[in-house]
């Protein structure tokens, strides 16, 4: 049998270095958040309920997809990316009503809590589909930069730009690579890909140009 050189990737049975083979870019471990000691002392002094509010907020942002999949409530799943604020509210709970809810303090706190929870889940479902916590990126080379054999990849939303840079330098065996979005600006490595996707996507893809030298000064 002849061996096909440019074969499609096999199934993941024998692929240790799956990042090189599949169209999914493996996660890099997120860096541990460094917090000034004085701030964490203040956080420790917070009451339990306040601390919980804070933790939930942070978790909901960092792993928003994880949070929604853990939720027992079934969500209406209509994927539309993270919708911009002005459009999103048309869905199940308009902003006005959420504001009036704040003023009606007659309802008991548990009622209110469930309302909040529902509202939050609505937000989650409209923000990010729990089925597709991944985004699609398309790599486009600039100038004489080597062409990548496969151009379209999926990657988890909560990954940062640094993951892409590492992936590309490894894959193309380059010393350094500069990434550009919308053929204009270069994101900082700590930026979240999901956020970039929401703001700067073209269709359902985030188009990323890459170059081994500086392309757009």
């Amino acid at each position: 049998m002849s061996t096909i050189i440019h074969s499609e990737p096999d199934d993941d049975s024998s692929s240790e270095s799956s990042s090189d083979r599949s169209n999914f870019i493996e996660d890099e471990k997120p860096a541990v958040a460094k917090i000034p000691l004085s701030t964490s002392v203040i956080l420790d002094r917070l009451s339990y309920s306040k601390k919980q509010q804070l933790d939930r907020t942070i978790n909901s942002i960092r792993h928003d997809t994880v949070a929604s999949s853990e939720s027992p409530v079934t969500l209406s799943r209509s994927f539309s990316g993270r919708k911009p604020i002005s459009v999103r509210t048309e869905e199940s709970l308009p902003q006005e009503s959420s504001l009036t809810l704040t003023s009606t303090s007659t309802s008991t706190s548990t009622d209110r809590r469930t309302q909040i929870l529902q509202q939050f889940h609505t937000r989650q479902s409209s923000n990010v589909s729990s089925e597709t916590p991944k985004i699609t990126v398309r790599f486009v080379p600039i100038g004489s930069t080597p062409i990548i054999d496969k151009k379209v990849f999926t990657i988890n939303r909560h990954q940062s730009v640094a993951t892409l840079t590492k992936f590309l330098t490894k894959k193309l065996r380059l010393n350094s690579v500069h990434l550009y979005i919308q053929s204009s600006f270069s994101p900082t490595p700590d930026e979240n890909l999901g956020d970039l996707f929401d703001s700067f996507r073209t269709g359902e893809e985030l188009i990323i140009s890459y170059c081994n030298t500086i392309a757009f000064g």
């Binding site: 460094k34 804070l54 604020i85 002005s86 459009v87 509210t89 902003q95 504001l99 937000r123 703001s199």
Partner: peptide
Amino acid sequence: SGSSTIVQSPVFPNKDTTKVTLKNILVE
């Protein structure tokens, strides 16, 4: 503060005909 979390989301200045306020964004 106290986390490395950054929220960065596209915010439109208007929702239909009403202006989006700071409170709207934070609640959202």
